[in-house]
Design a protein around this nucleic acid. Structure first.
Lengths: 344, 344
DNA sequence: CTCGACTGGACAATCGTTTGCCTGGAGGGG
DNA sequence: CCCCTCCAGGCAAACGATTGTCCAGTCGAG
């Protein structure tokens, strides 16, 4: 039993036209219900039944060439295995499909080289626009997008010159809220696991953290800030460094730059035999689904993940279909979700 | 500051040819290093520097039209938010990119209608092949793929007539292994959370479960089998039904069709105040990353998730590039991973 | 009877590449 | 001096759709 091989000769407009005894353009106009076409009722039904019976599917590639539009969007994210980005992606797809756009997904694993390479390949494919969730504060690929006039929307992270359309959450406020909450819980030595310096979310959440400490009259101890990156593994490593400090210098609470890193803190606490939240309180950012499933539940900042995707896709398609436009910015207000990891 | 608008007039072969004072075909041959081209060294370098300086990017759409190949693969999965499918997808992308293929990702949420609609749209886009991880045992969309001679590979789930290329794990053996393990732990009343009847993985894991019980001289009590679907929520609901049975009829262990459903059992146990594994042991299938993170760790069957994606993409691309071929089948041997959820 | 308007479609250019075949001139051999 | 062979590229036809323009009849009005 073998696979039938290089598909049957696909039916084309020209083929149909020959069958119907009309010109290809006429078939095209019937298929697209072109109002400028005046046609006899008999010819019309003949063509229509032919279209139906042959199950004609226009060749999207030929159409794209002619229309100069591919109806494909490119999405570049660090890693779809990260539940946060998976959720954003779903939002994008859910918004794009009903409007007739497909999505090509590209993962960078945080590598600027891969980002650039993806961007190049997407360019060759003439995607109509790009959603980029892996932006760095100073990111040459974004400069390039701007220079080439490619429609694009930045998600979650933005770039230094704020000239691009953007959808994300208020990271500064979020960082502040989490830290205030920990202060209210009576913590005085609050550690922070920060992400990569070159990423906007890192910088803002850190500033929010510092601002809240300052407002509470506490001073930010540099010793209590460790760089973890955005994954669990880095969180574990960085948390160990903090939690193995001598007792009087050790933090009693840790705010991690995102939920994944916060889960790394769970692992560290378990390894050191520390109880959560009694010995160490933990908070994250994003409220990915696992945050509610771990034991104890993770206190975090809720971000409308799916909605972020939906809005960014909508914004991009608007941009594509309306031509140039002021770059819009949508920033969602963060919301604190208190769970067992900080409530004692 | 506005977005630069509809990109500058892209450079085309014709444009370059005019600049270089040669025919477009010559530029094309230089760009593609066509060996059949004999050309003077001076003309060649002139064209080459032009290509470099203008950063010429061929129009992939035009090229696809001519070559009758899009270098795009379609991937259809139930939900990328499910870590299992996210992992498979990463494997697919990681294998496809180096070979010059991009991937369009489509989520169905388990709806056959959405599956069909995606298939149709992917067909219009003339993708070179399709990877389908959402197959039903009797699935009209797959019959259609076969009939149209579209290159395709089924992943994880297969269809009844085993005429398609397939990559997955040995679900029958896996189901047996898990159940044997539970029997060895001394359990006599072992419940099963099964997925959807119309899916191959469900059927096979169930049969493995029954076979192991039979081999151990236990009889499969229909009361202990509940339908949960593949998500946590369904697992919670179904597990509650099982765990709320009167004590003497209640299962002391539950094997769930996949890890997500197994996490639902965790939630049910917590709600009923049952301790894991003391009051109820739990096992899943797939070994998604969370399985190792929950407390206690989830005993499960390890599937080489990323590898499944890599292999299926490789197989599909081979199929595309070599034309018709015998449908291959790759089946990975399952491996039991014992964690705290069953070890007492 | 003639002119104009409308009816029902046909024509052909175009989107940007690829590729099999052709050709004009130069050089070499007989 | 003539013919053949290379050399270095040119030519043009696809690939499958879209769309502005054009045209051959027919019909009605004057």
């Amino acid at each position: 039993m073998s696979i039938p091989g290089p598909a049957r000769p696909a039916i084309t407009l020209k083929g149909l036209a020959a069958m119907a005894g009309v010109h290809p353009s006429t078939v095209s106009r019937v298929a697209n219900a072109d109002p400028s076409l005046r046609i006899g009722p008999e010819t019309r039904t003949r063509i229509e039944t032919l279209l139906r019976e042959t199950q004609y599917r226009p060749n999207g590639i030929a159409r794209s060439l002619k229309l100069r539009q591919s109806f494909v969007l490119g999405v570049i994210i660090p890693d779809v295995t990260n539940p946060f980005f998976a959720g954003v992606y779903r939002g994008i797809e859910d918004a794009a499909l009903p409007r007739g756009y497909h999505v090509i997904l590209c993962n960078t694993d945080g590598s600027p080289d891969r980002e650039l390479s993806h961007l190049r390949m997407l360019g060759e494919r003439r995607v109509d626009g790009i959603i980029l969730a892996s932006a760095y504060l100073s990111d040459p690929s974004i400069a390039r997008l701007r220079a080439e006039g490619v429609a694009h929307v930045l998600v979650n992270r933005y770039s230094d010159e704020q000239k691009d359309a953007f959808v994300g959450s208020d990271d500064l406020a979020g960082g502040r809220m989490v830290t205030e909450h920990l202060v209210q819980q009576g913590h005085r030595r609050i550690g922070h696991l920060s992400g990569l310096r070159s990423v906007s979310t890192t910088a803002l959440r850190l500033r929010g953290y510092q601002a809240a400490l300052h407002a509470a009259g506490l001073q930010a101890d540099p010793e209590l800030i460790a760089e973890s990156g955005f994954m669990e593994e880095g969180g574990l490593r960085a948390a160990l460094a903090l939690l193995e400090l001598p007792l009087e210098r050790r933090p009693t609470a840790i705010f991690a730059v995102n939920d994944l890193a916060a889960l790394g803190v769970y692992a560290a606490a378990r390894r050191l035999g520390l109880r959560i939240p009694h010995d160490v309180a933990i908070a994250g950012f994003n409220d990915i689904p696992i945050a509610a499933r771990v034991e104890p539940g993770l206190t975090t900042i809720q971000v409308p993940i799916h909605e972020v995707g939906v809005v960014s896709a909508g914004m991009l398609i608007d941009q594509v279909e309306s031509g140039a436009r002021e770059p819009r910015r949508v920033i969602f207000a963060p919301q604190l979700v208190v769970r067992g990891s900080t409530a004692r």
